[in-house]
């Protein structure tokens, strides 16, 4: 353990923790844009700078370990001035279109500009205009709004292990891009949308939310029904209708991670082709039936086959879209109730 002083308050911290971690554990606010606890430390945005007694320069709290006896100021005049400058510079190279930006209300850059009272940039100069990539139906990329925090690059490389995007060029002209500036598509990435969920600005957005303001939705936590992993996420519901999905970072199973299906395939809920009641084929045609009718029908047929041809005449094939528990119960039913080992799963290849 080490003892440090933060804003005049003595704090005991575990050795090896960064200043930022100590602050957050003690509910002391330090703003960040490029930091994400699930990703490697980057130290690029410089918004989290704090004043450490005896240090020549301001230090980035996300990269600096808290050491014994450190005396830290997180909101001194010098710190606030520097943070305002960081925000000012970022805004000087950023469209000021918060009124119509998809990210408004859910934007980290907007939040810190609000908190530090930076209304508009004071620096005038070149703003490079990049083409917006909106060829893909679910992910839109607007490089004009990118602040180069690199979270998307890191999440794609470190969590998703795809490395579909990286920094391109350097200096003021640096961007985050795809190889040879190809539009984002299934050709080059898995469209998991991890990059979208870590993006602090409107540079990467989930197009399913177009037309929806973040404060208009109610979040309903649920378990993804698309495979046996059982990821937890929030359904975003507007006016009684599911608009899209956002991750729930405290999920035990998946944290903030989601795949292409879980994140983007909620639209199937409203598909006109969706089967909403059991169907029984009568005279060559499927006819709607009640659950009782359907289950009775199945039980009767299974019993009949078992009695006539023995249990091994029956085989069961379960679905990858069932949960683990459901799959467990299914094989239990096949073995105990039917009495056969003929049970398999569509994803067992």
């Amino acid at each position: 353990m080490v003892t440090i002083t933060m804003n005049g308050k003595e704090i005991k911290a575990e050795k090896g923790k960064t200043i930022l971690e100590c602050a957050r554990e003690n509910n002391i606010y330090i703003p960040t844009l490029c930091y994400d606890e699930t990703l490697s430390i980057y130290g690029g945005c410089r918004l989290c700078v704090v004043e450490v007694e005896g240090a020549r320069n301001l230090v980035a709290s996300c990269t600096t370990e808290a050491t014994e006896g450190m005396v830290i100021q997180t909101e001194s005049e010098k710190v606030v001035k520097a943070r305002k400058n960081v925000i000012d510079l970022l805004l000087s190279n950023h469209p000021i279109d918060c009124l119509t930006c998809e990210k408004a209300g859910n934007c980290d850059l907007q939040d810190v500009a609000y908190r530090y009272g930076v209304r508009e940039p004071s620096y005038i100069g070149e703003v490079i205009e990049y083409a917006v990539d909106d060829a893909n139906p679910v992910i839109a990329r607007d490089p004009n709004k990118c602040i180069l925090c690199g979270k998307c690059v890191r999440v794609c490389d470190e969590i998703q292990v795809t490395h579909a995007i990286d920094f391109v060029d350097r200096g003021f002209g640096a961007t985050v891009g795809t190889p040879f500036n190809e539009p984002i598509s299934y050709e080059i990435c898995r469209l998991c949308g991890q990059c979208v969920s870590v993006c602090p600005t409107g540079a990467l957005t989930n197009r399913q939310f177009e037309g929806t303001r973040p404060w208009e939705v109610e979040k309903v936590t649920t378990t993804c029904s698309l495979c046996g992993v059982g990821c937890t996420y929030d359904l975003n519901v507007k006016d009684g209708r599911v608009v899209g999905v956002t991750p729930k970072p405290d999920s035990i199973v998946n944290g903030s991670s989601l795949c292409v299906k879980g994140r983007f395939h909620t639209d199937f809920a409203y598909s006109p082709d969706r089967i909403t009641t059991p169907l029984i084929k009568k005279d060559g045609e499927f006819v709607e039936a009640s659950w009782d009718e359907a289950l009775d029908f199945i039980a009767e047929k299974l019993n009949k086959i078992k009695a006539e041809d023995g249990p091994d005449a029956i085989a069961g094939l379960s679905s990858a879209r069932c949960t683990n528990e459901e799959n467990y119960l299914f094989q239990k039913m096949m073995k105990a109730a039917i009495g056969t080992n003929n049970v398999d799963h569509c994803a067992r290849t």
Partner: peptide, 22 residues
């Protein structure tokens, strides 16, 4: 040629492009 290098070495195209433009 860069695509070929990526295919043979397993280094992702995005990374190669990133280094080539740096």
């Amino acid at each position: 040629a860069l695509n070929y290098v990526s295919e043979k070495t397993g280094i992702q195209r995005a990374k190669i492009y990133g280094v080539a433009t740096f």
